[in-house]
Amino acid sequence: MAKVWVLAESAGGKVSSLSLELLTKARELGDTVEAVAWGADTASIAGDLGAHGASTVHDLGDLGTSLPGVSVAAAIAAAIEAGTGPDILLVGQSYDGRDVAGRLSAKLDKPVLTNVVGLAAGEPPVASHAIFGGATIVEATFTGSAPFIYAVRPKSFAAEPSGGSATVAPLSVPETGATNAATVVDRHVEERSGPQLDEAAVVVSGGRGLGEAANYAMIEELAKLLKGAPGASRAIVDAGWVPYAYQVGQTGKTVKPTLYIAAGISGATQHMVGMKGSKNIIAINKDQEAPILQIADLGIVGDVHKVLPQLIEALKARS
């Protein structure tokens, strides 16, 4: 039976929810589930990783000021070469996850199935991908031999504890040379108030239809009134109205809130991939043909500059 390794990303002593989702799924794909982790204090996250199904945490230790991609890929490749590595590797479709998958793929001359939103057990497992903005589901698998690398989108699976515990075992990083020459000289944390975009029960997103950057204030106000998080389409992130961290979509965050409100967003493929899983969708757009109106539970064909202020006033009057 297959040995599955899961890339365990963490920040501030907390495992990313994506990594816990992958561990949960990994239990269906193989009989041995193990995690690969790095950082100054891997012991502190081993409990959480064990509780979600990892029997061993392969600890690369503190990678210092290097970016994780090259070191982590090199350590996994060395384990595979030594015959102690995985048959299946699950990485998150995250900043560092993609770096690891790309480096490892080229190193091993093995392909990667990316943007995976579903996995079914098999030899090798079959991956599902949502294409054309989620309108079509494609199933794909590998034709060659193990190891099989899958990069999985956030929120594809629910994270559920299994009640196990993990042993921590060191995994050494081989000499990486010139490829590992990038150095992190400073880290900046951008503070945001209110709930996290990818965890909020209500998300209110704005797009190009807002007309100008100053009008994004309406999105923030509405989000606050609904105790939700403000989000954005790629168009207004590209235009510099709001930071990249606000972006919902293929390149940005995947959200699945109870309620998603899209204001002045037409519903490009890029955006739909990131929010189509929302339980309820309200869309306001002046173009009756906008694709977003076709997937909305409540679609308003109207001007956001009129509808949003009226809605905000009505909600204020009730609170």
């Binding site: 494609v138 679609g299 308003i300």
Partner: peptide
């Protein structure tokens, strides 16, 4: 080194209600 094994239409979202704003759409919301 990879192949597509199946292509299907995703389950479509149930068609919702679309309303043209006549000044009172916010009440619908």
């Amino acid at each position: 080194g990879q192949k597509i094994t199946n292509v299907t239409a995703a389950e479509a979202r149930k068609a919702g209600e679309v309303v043209v704003d006549e000044g009172d759409a916010f009440q619908k919301i």
